[in-house]
Amino acid sequence: MSDIIINDEVDITDVMCPVTFAKAKVALEELEDGQVLSVLLNAGEPVRNVPRSMEYEGNQVLKLTDNQDGTFTLLVKKGGTK
């Protein structure tokens, strides 16, 4: 998995639902299909819902890493499932 090129990053640990997904989505919409966004998100509600919403909208979740500090890093490929 070390060959994943990350095209942009966004930190959504500073906002609450539903702004979490909205903020990640705004960042993702700036990318081209096939590009990868790295999302820093909090444990709990965000980590349960944001990856699912990303997949529901036709993107591909590549990796979800527990940073062991109450946050996770999510790698999403835009439009990866289409």
Partner: peptide, 23 residues
Amino acid sequence: AFSNEQLERYARHIVLKDVGAKG
């Protein structure tokens, strides 16, 4: 670029598949 206030104000639109940031 949306301001943080706009992100929050329009979050219920942006999260919709048929709207999004572009909509």
